[in-house]
């Protein structure tokens, strides 16, 4: 499925608008489909008639200069920001418009924020325990609920994956910046979402950490769709299969890293300024 999609994309000249692509490919296969979405902040159009889609189990990287609307794109998907017009469809036919953030999370969309956002006053274990996917996250379920052995095993495993095994009982607030990033990724993984939104996961990480993060994301993409927003082109090259370039709230180019980097407009608006942007 993903392969077909890539072929299709490669056939298209890069400058063609993604709206056209949407018409040509059936969005039945996409896990998330934004159709003509506009977000208006007091006259400033953070997203401008944006059409964008991601397939199941696809790892998509979104790049673009500051203010291109990358974070707003994630905000619209997870319900933090309401679109002024357009449609946001999750899976086959779930319209996300008008849904609350918690409802959207329950549908299976997880999000990792740009600035690491963990519960600083709780231990690492507690952070993970709270994030674990459970049948009910209502007040009474959590009041009376006990951890099952299976859940404990999952958390243990997760701790290993994110390399925080020795820190299970440390307060999350006292972790290093990179560890917090990892913890948050671990939390989102435990939510077991079918679509994972990741905002600048490697900001402030060492090279080694960055590479590990890339491997982690790639292995996750075997099971779930991931949208990654990233500035670090090194990292983008490592993980990206398809890159979407946003500029002024619209998609100006979509394709492989090489293709995108070869594109004149992208060079002009983005790559030329890439070093400055970070």
């Amino acid at each position: 499925m993903g392969g077909n999609r890539l072929c299709l994309l490669r056939k298209l000249p890069c400058w063609r608008g993604s709206a056209e692509m949407a018409e040509q490919s059936s969005f039945q296969n996409s896990i998330i489909y934004l159709d003509g979405v506009t977000v208006d902040y007091d006259g400033f159009k953070a997203l401008n008639n944006l059409t964008f889609m991601v397939d199941y189990k696809e790892l998509r990287v979104v790049i673009g200069p500051n203010g291109a609307g990358k974070t707003t794109l994630l905000d619209v998907i997870c319900g933090k920001t309401k679109a002024a017009s357009g449609r946001v469809v999750f899976g086959r036919d779930v319209d996300l418009k008008g849904k609350h953030e918690d409802e959207i999370v329950a549908l299976g969309i997880g999000r990792k924020f740009q600035a690491p956002s963990v519960y600083g006053f709780l231990s690492v274990w507690e952070n993970l325990d709270l994030s674990l996917k459970r049948s009910s996250k209502g007040v009474f379920a959590t009041l009376f609920g006990k951890s099952t052995a299976d859940e404990r095993v999952r958390i243990e495993k997760n701790l290993e994956t994110i390399g925080l095994k020795d820190y299970a009982h440390t307060r999350a607030g006292s972790l290093s910046h990179g560890q917090k990033q990892w913890l948050e990724i671990g939390m989102v993984i435990l939510q077991d979402p079918s679509l994972l939104l990741v905002d600048e996961p490697v900001a402030g990480m060492t090279d080694e950490e960055t590479e590990q993060t890339g491997q982690l994301l790639q292995s996750l993409a075997e099971k779930q769709a991931i949208i990654v927003i990233e500035h670090d082109m090194e990292f983008v090259r490592q993980i990206a299969r398809v890159v979407t370039v946003l500029h002024e709230g619209t998609v100006i180019c979509e394709g492989s890293v090489e293709k995108v980097q070869a594109d004149d407009r992208v060079r002009e608006i983005y790559l030329g300024r890439q070093k400055v942007a970070h």
Partner: peptide
């Protein structure tokens, strides 16, 4: 000491995150 109690502390800590962990 229940998990709900930790959700309460989590709300104080970062309400945004609590929402994205699937709680209301």
């Amino acid at each position: 000491r229940s998990r709900a109690g930790r959700v309460l502390v989590a709300v104080r800590d970062s309400e945004k995150r609590v929402v994205f962990s699937g709680y209301t």
